[in-house]
Design a protein around this nucleic acid. Structure first.
Ligand SMILES: [Zn+2]
Ligand SMILES: [Zn+2]
Ligand SMILES: [Zn+2]
Ligand SMILES: [Zn+2]
Lengths: 165, 165
DNA sequence: CTATTGATGTTATAATATAACATTGAGATA
DNA sequence: TATCTCAATGTTATATTATAACATCAATAG
């Protein structure tokens, strides 16, 4: 299993990378996780996770349903939302609030408070682990509030798209 | 016009404050702003802003429409969304992504990247100015992405609600 | 077995948001 | 004055996102 080099990989996430390795690693991780926790990584769940993993592009629930339909599988809304709930609960998928879309986690395993960079042109998304992003939420928080979960999303433009404009 | 004491006020936002002053200041600010930019702060816009200012509680677009209906005003979806767009564009209202709801800005004027604390029990929201929150988004960002806008939301529980449970 | 359970399937509907076009009214212009 | 223009508001219809409620199925624990 290939070792990750977080800083490099993360800091140029919008550039090309060895996606076969990326894809394979993620599949391996979720299989391992489900086996360990005695959870069922069913064909449906696998399929949806594959869609999301395919090119790091966030997909809306209804886009996922379209893909399922194309693949001849059941495709009513609850199907997608349930699978997504499962994948999110287990930490392998995140919701991008600003897009009403879902994306495969890029740093699975390590329990984290992710931050996302979202290109407004190509809508690709890169996930930063909190350690790398340097985001220090929860440090200087008022005394009358207890943080349980954070959502951090940055809209902007990636260099590829910037170059094209 | 009353001077604000940001640190104190912000760090105990979930506690009581002099809301008459708070309300009045905000109204003053938006009137001043619209006058300066030659924008129309119409009765409709004023009314919606008042709803949002009333108790710092985020309101969904359809809640606002209900309030407008109660007040005998037009209440079809575009009415609310257009007014909200205007108020957001001018920086006096923010959308809370995690709630699909809208809230009056607590630090109007100062162009900012706000961060929100959202109580999952009472759903009240407190807004932190970036200076106060200590959030340093955009500092350690990858070289292949240019940040234009940030969304930071913290879910958790406020001390009032914590005390009740 | 058969009872329970987790997963999937199905139908209907709720909740959120926008597109497209019509009307109004307050200045600007002629 | 007449009418032009433009921003704001009003209206109808529809798109998009998400959930409730209940039915079926298959693996397995008792
Ligand atoms: Zn992640
Ligand atoms: Zn891009
Ligand atoms: Zn604000
Ligand atoms: Zn609370």
């Amino acid at each position: 299993m290939q070792k990750k080099i977080p800083t490099k990989e993360t800091f140029e996430f919008f550039k090309k990378h060895d996606h076969d390795v990326c894809f394979g690693d993620a599949m391996m991780e979720i299989e391992k996780h489900c086996h360990k926790k005695n959870l069922q990584f069913t064909p449906l769940r696998r399929r949806v996770f594959e869609y999301l993993l395919r090119d790091h592009k966030p997909l809306g629930a209804y886009e996922i349903l379209d893909l399922l339909r194309e693949d001849g599988l059941a495709s009513t809304p609850p199907i997608a939302y349930r699978v997504l709930d499962f994948l999110m609960k287990e930490g392998f998928v995140h919701k991008i609030q600003g897009l009403n879309a879902f994306v495969a986690c890029s740093h699975p395993g390590s329990s984290h408070s992710p931050a996302f960079m979202i290109c407004r042109k190509c809508e690709k998304v890169a996930e930063l682990d909190e350690k790398i992003s340097g985001i220090n939420l929860g440090k200087s928080i008022p005394s009358d509030f207890s943080v349980e979960e954070t959502v951090v999303e940055m809209r902007g433009i990636c260099t590829s798209c910037m170059a094209l404009s």
